[in-house]
Design a protein around this nucleic acid. Structure first.
Ligand code: MN
Ligand code: MN
Ligand code: MN
Ligand code: MN
Lengths: 224, 224
DNA sequence: AACTATTTTTAAGTATACTTAAAAATTTAT
DNA sequence: ATAAATTTTTAAGTATACTTAAAAATAGTT
């Protein structure tokens, strides 16, 4: 299937995970195309039996569409893991490369990469890597920093973004998958979260506190 | 530039190296497209200043086209080198993957791969890898087996093919980049070459004896 | 040199993946 | 409930990269 189709199916999959309002417009925004193009593509994918399309209704992936999405996501996260391990590249850079490489990787090569890395269950952002059958065996017990308790110490389990500025910020302050942070104060009304990392106190706004995921202990989501 | 453009420019470059008859038809055959499509593309590339096009004349790359070709070739051969080193993949498989990956690789990633491998000068087929400026510093002193002398012993310096059957044949008989072979007899009239590898005698027809390149000694083309 | 075969070019048409503009439906706000 | 705002859809059109069919030019053969 084409790059456009794979990216579209992946975007639908990811959006459906987060919200229950997966209509053309959101996908269009995500992919940087017009709403008209997204509607058009949705219709085409319905013909290919990759999703169910009904005018003005939510887009819902078929089993086939779901498999395709997971296969692309698998390749994306395996590439990220490999590039991160082998080369000194930032989280943002590995994401950018993986966004392209994911579409040009045979299942065979994906399996080789996975094997080489010891079949990792998480990528460098803390996102789970589906296995060769498209199955995610790990359960995610993490939650966003915005919902963490004052005074408690957590482990970063996921940095859910693909924004360069965010990753630069993370790199600068030691916000890294697996690292420990303490929530010193929650400013509920102003939607800000104050944390302590490496003895530095940082005040996060909502944009950042809702894409940084943490776990209470090192158990589940940390397997690196 | 698009995949189609990159593959076209690369095909022109490679053909011009071998022959002096680089017209649309040959490129069309190489890329598996119609002659009409090749002529069409040639015209478009002329507008983009990637090659010089004159009706019924040879296609000649511009400096810009040449650079693009070398950049794609560099990425191709770096990928082949990396995949060959890291994973247990055949020469044919690494070529297949590289044919796609070469178009989705940033210059930055290419440099990282090169660095990681110690800036190799040759890929696993024995083909030279251009440096980041598109320069090939090695000089190729090798020649085809069909032109080798009876009784002499040589070192395989290049396996110039992308045919699976050929690579299977090579793997089966120990014909590998860097290995030693002896030419036991040249059947000039019948265009066949008899060689001895690992104490086995093999009779090669013209198809194979003209794509296996050898060197007299281990000097130039062997730097693995 | 003339004829034939081959190659190249032109012409017309297709599929994919987009665009903008306007109509239709839905959602939100008053 | 009505009006306004937003989103979705339709319609028409574009660029890229191909196709087949036929015309034109070149290259090879007698
Ligand atoms: Mn990513
Ligand atoms: Mn992608
Ligand atoms: Mn190759
Ligand atoms: Mn290619």
């Amino acid at each position: 299937m084409s790059v456009a189709v794979e990216n579209f199916v992946k975007a639908v999959y990811k959006n459906a995970k987060r919200t229950n309002d997966t209509k053309p417009g959101i996908i269009a925004k995500e992919l940087g195309i017009s709403n008209a193009a997204a509607t058009d593509m949705a219709k085409k994918l319905a013909v290919k039996d990759l999703l169910h399309y009904e005018k003005y209704q939510e887009l819902k992936l078929t089993v086939k569409g779901n498999q395709m999405a997971l296969n692309v996501i698998r390749k994306h996260r395996l590439w990220e893991s490999l590039l991160f391990k082998m080369f000194d590249m930032s989280l943002h850079d590995i994401h950018r490369e993986a966004e392209l490489l994911e579409h040009q990787t045979s299942d065979l090569l994906a399996n080789k990469i996975s094997e080489y890395l010891g079949n990792p269950k998480f990528d460098p952002h803390g996102d789970p890597i589906p296995d060769k059958n498209g199955i995610i065996t790990t359960t995610d017990t993490s939650f966003t920093l915005s919902k963490a308790n004052e005074g408690k110490t957590y482990i970063i389990s996921r940095l859910m973004s693909d924004d360069k500025e965010f990753f630069d910020f993370c790199a600068q302050h030691g916000l890294k998958y697996g690292n420990t942070i303490t929530v010193s104060k929650q400013f509920i009304k102003n939607k800000m979260t104050q944390i302590v990392v490496n003895n530095n106190t940082i005040l996060l706004n909502e944009d950042f506190s809702t894409i940084i995921y943490v776990n209470e202990n090192e158990s589940k989501n940390v397997q690196h």
